[in-house]
């Protein structure tokens, strides 16, 4: 590998951007999931090699990850162009061409029914529900009860960067509890992406359908968050297994 050509991004910076891209079905980073096989930097031009667990991963999901990877890398000031090379996918030709030529999904897949935005929204909503579970768990651990939690708004939160914690004020700001920042921040990110929380006094937590939570049904709603997590991690188990089987087979072929 040649030395960095001046003007290009560092490998670490590219990796950090890619780390923000999630597998939309699993809500996990594509870097953690080991989908990124290679990063090639040539001055301000970057190429990213991606391989998914199976050749028949939904083309819509593959498309989302490829587009997100391209856009994240291109958001680095030192990058002029990012190209995506998806490998071993049944639709790699359409996806690589579409993403690198910046076509809309419908043009890359003329015979697909339904558009990719609707699929993304559906999965984002599920990811929000799953992340809500962790955020609510943190608040329960801190001693808050259902009534207090369902009333929380963004204006009740005060982040303390130094300690990576957040103070949550309840009961008309009469007192606060301190919880880890991470689950709250992760939740807020998806709650904003799905437009559920935009104003400081919006309710922070919602049912999977997006409604305010009745304290009476708090436990049930919380269970549904857990279920959304189990669904994602189960699907992750299938994907992991299929990826291992596929790698095993490729190794077997290589050794032949």
């Amino acid at each position: 590998m040649s030395a960095q050509i001046s003007g290009g991004p560092t490998r670490g910076a590219v990796r950090d951007r890619l780390d923000r891209v999630t597998d939309p079905e699993l809500d996990r980073s594509i870097v953690d999931l080991e989908y990124v096989d290679g990063i090639e930097i040539d001055g301000p031009r970057v190429a990213v090699d991606l391989t998914l667990p199976t050749a028949w991963c939904s083309p819509a999901f593959a498309w989302m990850m490829a587009v997100d990877a391209r856009d994240e890398v291109e958001s680095l000031p030192a990058v002029e162009e990012a190209r995506i090379r998806l490998h071993d996918h049944m639709h790699e030709t359409e996806i690589n061409r579409g993403v690198n030529d910046r076509l809309p999904f419908a043009e890359a897949f003329p015979d697909a029914d339904g558009d990719v935005a609707a699929v993304r929204t559906e999965l984002d909503e599920k990811a929000r529900v799953a992340r809500q579970y962790d955020a609510v768990e943190a608040l329960l651990d801190a001693g808050l009860d259902a009534e207090a939690i369902v009333d929380c708004s963004p204006c009740d939160l005060e982040m303390t960067d130094a300690t990576d914690t957040v103070d949550v004020y309840v009961d008309d700001r009469s007192f606060a509890v301190t919880v880890p920042n991470d689950p709250i921040e992760r939740y807020l990110e998806k709650a904003r992406e799905t437009d559920l929380v935009s104003e400081p006094d919006d309710l922070l937590f919602r049912t999977p359908e997006g409604d305010p939570i009745d304290p009476e049904s708090f436990d049930h709603v919380h269970r549904r968050g857990r279920l959304a997590q189990v669904n994602m991690s189960s699907q992750g188990g299938i994907c992991d297994g299929l990826r291992e089987a596929r790698e095993g087979r490729l190794e077997g072929t290589a050794n032949d």
Binding site: E25, L227, N231
Partner: peptide, 28 residues
């Protein structure tokens, strides 16, 4: 319903003539 276990369970919780077949989940 995998990979929609969540949707499936939610429906099954409301419709008592809905059952879950374990194929695929079993070999986990």
């Amino acid at each position: 319903g995998l990979p929609r276990l969540d949707d499936f369970c939610w429906i099954a919780a409301q419709e008592n003539n809905v059952y879950g077949g374990l194929a695929v989940a079993a070999p986990f």
